[in-house]
Amino acid sequence: MKRLVSKLLLLTVSCAGMINPGFAQDQAPATAPALEEVICFESRKGASEVTKIDLQPGWPNVKCSTKTGAVLWWGDPFDGTVPMGDMPLLPNVPGKVVVKPRSAKMNLLPMCGTACHNGVGPQFNPPTLPKDKKPKPIPTMEAMFPDAKNFQHGRGRIWCLDCHHTTQRSKFVDNFGDPISFDQPQLLCGKCHGDKLRDWRDGIHGKRIGEWASTGKKRWFVCTECHNPHNVQDGVRNKGFIQLEPETPPQLPRGMKDAKHELLHGVAH
């Protein structure tokens, strides 16, 4: 049973699962020389891309690493953000908590946002909604998200519609079957990862940029901006955060040919 679930699981993974890195990586080259447009990624590849522009003459919105294409520096931390919305147990601080909306990610292809992931539901007649909790392969989704076949989350104990809403394909689902916005995945993830949610709420887990004062305005990075929920059990390092390319090492001191000297020439005991 478990095996069957994980095999079939993939296919229903929706366009909404755009967070899928394999696909998005192809979409986001570090540089597009033809347009001389620099596109960098923020926390992890595939989650949020930024096009480099000048906010003011000589003041870019981001500075990017030439080696990895990662954003190294934000000229304006609140560029393109929206208020996060209500969250349980979070003191209501209007305008102080902002996130970058992820809805644009829904329109991977024009038809995704109109046909199924339109916030309403599949408009096929009759709508092909799942009758039970047994995943069925959808060839379209399977072709678009080959990585979905390797679904690594929950070790075979969860399936698509535990997180994605049945009829509103551009929403997540909470314990009562009500939709959750894609901008607030913490309300979904916190259903199981309560300890992480608590630390994230207090600023201990996860990333924030902006003002450091506890009452200051901050852009919070939400769960899916750092973690790929379809691939949190990364096989190589299994730490939740996928491996990435490091920046260049520092300059070696004058005269040192490589950094292995002390490893090769043991120190006398």
Binding site: V236, K239, L244, E245, P246, P250, A259, L263
Partner: peptide, 10 residues
């Protein structure tokens, strides 16, 4: 040591 240079980290 600080000069590590693998393809991927961690």
């Amino acid at each position: 040591q600080y000069y590590y240079e693998p393809e991927l980290v961690p």
